[in-house]
Simulated scan of single mutants.
Amino acid sequence: MADGSVAVRDQRQRKKDLLERLEREADIWVASADGHGMPCLVPLSFLWDGEAVWLSTRRTNPTGRNLSEVGRARLSLADTRDVVLIAGTVEVFGLDEVPVATADAFAATSRWDPRRPGNGPSYAYYRVTPTEVQVWYEEAELPARHLMRDGVWAV
């Protein structure tokens, strides 16, 4: 806008923008914690399959252990002005358990394939199914930031 203010998007527009970003972007911040509450925050490549976010990392690193043991994660796209926060439940898939089409799509999107020989069985896929989604661009959009609660889209 000419005065420098930002037009407030309605929830439908925010959901549309979110889904476009999930299709377009390649990396996402993954926050997890162990059973004692020790936090871990790392960027990982991801795939959005239209219902869930797929990640892959080693089972033995802190993120892999946390996702497996606690079964919850919080995700965020990188832009701190156009905020996306996704909380979700986690399912773990071994390299031989992940659907082939999903693994192929993940490899194409991230330009990295955890199944590649040499990686060994230490990698797994983690399917994060959203239970809560918040999206806002600066303060004006805060009041209607919840696009999903308890796994149900508001719009």
Score class of each variant (00 low, 15 high):
Pro99Asn: 09
Val92Thr: 15
Thr60Val: 12
Val100Ala: 07
Arg59Asp: 11
Ala105Ser: 13
Thr60Lys: 10
Glu91Ala: 09
Arg59Asn: 08
Val70Cys: 02
Leu85Asp: 02
Thr60Cys: 02
Leu75Trp: 00
Arg72Glu: 13
Arg72Ile: 08
Val92Pro: 10
Asp79Trp: 05
Ala105Glu: 10
Leu95Glu: 04
Asp96Asn: 15
Asp79Cys: 06
Leu55Gly: 10
Val90Arg: 09
Glu69Asn: 09
Ala78Arg: 13
Ala87Asp: 15
Thr80Leu: 14
Val70Phe: 04
Arg72Val: 14
Leu67Pro: 01
Arg59Met: 14
Gly88Ser: 08
Ala52Arg: 11
Val83Gly: 03
Asp104Ala: 11
Gly64Ser: 13
Ala101Val: 09
Pro62Asp: 13
Arg65Pro: 06
Arg65Ile: 11
Arg74Gly: 14
Val92Leu: 08
Ala78Gly: 15
Pro99Cys: 04
Glu97Ala: 15
Ala105Val: 06
Val100Met: 00
Glu69His: 07
Thr60Glu: 15
Leu75Gln: 00
Thr89Pro: 00
Glu51Ile: 00
Ala87Pro: 00
Asp96Phe: 06
Gly88Leu: 04
Thr60Trp: 06
Pro62His: 12
Leu95Cys: 01
Asp96Gln: 09
Ala78Val: 06
Leu55Glu: 09
Val83Ile: 13
Arg58Cys: 12
Gly71Asp: 07
Ala87Gly: 08
Arg58Leu: 15
Thr57Met: 10
Leu85Arg: 03
Thr80Phe: 15
Leu67Ser: 05
Leu75Met: 01
Ile86Ser: 09
Ala78Ile: 11
Ala105Gln: 04
Val83His: 07
Asp79Asn: 13
Asn61Cys: 05
Val92Asp: 03
Asp96Met: 06
Arg72Phe: 11
Leu77Arg: 03
Thr60Ser: 12
